[in-house]
Design a protein around this nucleic acid. Sequence first.
DNA 1: AACGTGGGCAACCGCCAATTT
DNA 2: GAAATTGGCGGTTGCCCACGT
Length: 337
Amino acid sequence: MRKPEVSAGKNNNKLRKGLWSPEEDDKLMNYMLNSGQGCWSDVARNAGLQRCGKSCRLRWINYLRPDLKRGAFSPQEEELIIHLHSLLGNRWSQIAARLPGRTDNEIKNFWNSTIKKRLKNISSNTSPNASDESSYDPNKDNNNMVGGFITSSTVQDQHHIDNHFMPMFNTSSPPSIQNTVFNTIMSSSNGGFFNNNSTTGTFFSQNNNHDNKSYYLEKMFGSVNINGAEGVEMEIYNVPPLESVNNSTITSENNTIKMENINACNIGEDTNYNISSYNFDDINNIVNNCNVVKRIDQNRAVDEVENLFHGDLTVADWDLEDLMKDVSSFPFLDFSN
DNA sequence: AACGTGGGCAACCGCCAATTT
DNA sequence: GAAATTGGCGGTTGCCCACGT
């Protein structure tokens, strides 16, 4: 911490720097609660603080905000941070956006002071050549195992097994939050479900029979060819949603499936499909019960996906959400606190 | 008790992008 | 359209404190 100090800026009359006093906290807190957030330089002035707006903003965001969660990080939060960092790197604000009540500064400090060290110890114990944490590259595909969780690369590896015969149901007690989705898929009369860790799976059709669900899922999410077997390969995730992102919806209208506000997805050739007849409930169940429905196939061009959204989704956003799919491996997280 | 050391963390710095003037 | 201002972010600093010697 810093000693309270005073700086004499060019245009500022001795703006204070350093530690915030309880009196300053009171002033800022009272002002924010009574008047709400405006221009931060106005906040500083109107609250009667000898601080720059930036300093007020930081103090509010990192310390005074009422919705901040206090105390140590839970093991769940810790594992999520590790996992998110493996996907996002040092994008602390993005990580913080998925940990309610935590700030980027807090997570950054926690990472640098605790996790970094721990991971370094682990890596030096397991690999004599990997003692440097900085050698870790979140963008590399071979970072399969992070914090003990299976990531998509691992999932994909399992598809390389001989799938001449489609693997059938392998239900090892999926988490309750996904039950609806899983049950919907599993109730399909034609297709298989390859479940590798209870929160992701692959849904196959064994042929091009247009009467089965996979055909329609295929129409929605595109088709893949796995060892010669045509089908839909999709993952179902429960990702803590960003506050700013609306829920995904799929609606049926005039025999057209309309997809809106999809957080992250690979979609087929168009967002709207004309289908003569289909029970949309199943598809709606799938989408409404997950935040992300994601096909594994990574080969689709990013700009093609972007075009589907008519510019509503930027390439960067899509890339980010693409990376975010692996957060699904955290079925135990409770974000209600 | 005195000193050194390292961890934890609040807050600053500098940069950049977006917005306003 | 240019300049100024503001907001947001990641990196870094430096103080306090606990702990070991």
